[in-house]
């Protein structure tokens, strides 16, 4: 039996009658979080989530080019940037959103590539993938998505999500989604992971409270469009940054966790404006040997939205985030407040 199949069997066992047969075949690790739909009592009307990991989306199968590829933004000063890792983007399937309709060329359109999602959705926008080219190798052997993975647990990225007006976690055509920055880091559990059910206070700055319309279909939350601003983000050497996206869409699968509470696996996409991006990651990229000149060059070449004369001023960006249910305290209008 493959590891995956064993995990699945084990997870199923947790939900049904677990007997010795399961144990005999059980994997060494604890059950995978794959518990199927929620099966508790009546759904809560308000449900908070705390982000446990968030990074720029990395399409499955992405790899660095084996050939030496000319640096498309080779504005080097002196030495080569040895960490620059040209990525092979052709033929990649990318899960995301068609933010602008399917057009890739034309009047008022910034020319760009559209991707296809693994399930066949066309027109997926992900201009930021070209920035990933530059920033992905943070340190030898460590990519940006790996480095960012532990950021929420370390308190470097504190994002919460509140679903309001939830009548049914499986089907609900009208919910409201708040995305907030929190003032505290969630607790870590005995397994070293962010603990479901943690309470954290919200950051009082209303600039970092965004609200999107949403609905739930088949246990999947769809939210947007709307603008989202997340503050107090720490990226490598850059502290206290702001990430502001326009026209944000969110898709998040909601599930019950076998060890209690719920979890969400989310894709967040939107337009990241040039100014905001430079402010957010401009300093961080210095730490990995790139520089503003290179970033501006990549933006000049690949920014795919907000054409203003000859310049495109925003770039489609996809974030992947995971979250567990918890409690955000101090939000106005907070149901479930102590």
């Amino acid at each position: 039996m493959t590891q995956h199949a064993a995990s699945l069997l084990f997870a199923l066992c947790l939900l049904s009658t677990c007997t010795l047969g399961c144990i005999a075949e059980g994997p060494d690790a604890a059950p995978e979080v794959d518990a199927g739909p929620w099966m508790g009592p009546a759904s809560p009307t308000t449900l908070d989530f705390l982000v446990t990991s968030m990074s720029f989306a990395v399409p499955e199968g992405i790899q660095a080019s084996s050939k030496t590829v000319a640096n498309p933004c080779g504005v080097k000063k002196g030495t080569d940037n040895t960490l620059y890792e040209p990525l092979v983007l052709d033929g990649l399937k990318i899960d995301g959103f068609d933010l602008d309709g399917t057009d890739t060329q034309g009047d008022g359109i910034c020319p760009h590539t559209d991707y296809v999602s693994p399930s066949g959705t066309k027109g997926v926008d992900y201009g930021f993938l070209h920035v990933m080219d530059m920033i992905r190798p943070v340190r030898p052997g460590q990519t940006v998505e790996v480095v960012l993975k532990s950021a929420p647990a370390q308190g470097l990225m504190r994002i919460g999500l509140r679903l309001k007006g939830v009548d049914d976690l499986l089907e609900d055509d009208d919910v409201s989604v708040q995305i907030v920055t929190t003032a505290e880091t969630p607790l870590l559990g005995a397994d070293g992971q962010i603990l479901a059910g943690s309470s954290v206070a919200v950051d009082p700055d209303p600039a970092f409270h965004s609200t999107l319309p949403g609905r739930i279909e088949g246990g999947v939350l769809h939210a947007g469009p709307g603008d989202v601003t997340m503050g107090k983000i720490n990226l490598l050497v850059a502290t206290d940054r702001v990430i502001a996206f326009k026209n944000v869409r969110i898709r998040a699968a909601l599930k019950a966790r076998p060890t209690g509470g719920y979890e969400a696996d989310a894709i967040i996409a939107g337009w990241w404006e040039r100014e905001s991006m430079s402010q957010a990651i401009g300093k961080a990229i210095l730490a990995i040997g790139a520089n503003q000149g290179e970033l501006q060059c990549v933006l000049d070449k690949y920014a795919d939205h907000s054409l203003d004369g000859k310049t495109c001023n925003a770039m489609s960006t996809i974030l992947r985030a995971k979250a567990v249910s918890g409690f955000i305290t101090g939000l106005p209008d907070g149901a479930g407040e102590p």
Partner: peptide, 19 residues
């Protein structure tokens, strides 16, 4: 009385320890 550390077990929000 509730604390942040106990909140996840009781599955309740806790704004302040020992409230």
């Amino acid at each position: 009385f509730m604390t942040r550390n106990l909140g996840p077990i009781y599955d309740v929000p806790v704004a302040k320890d020992w409230s």
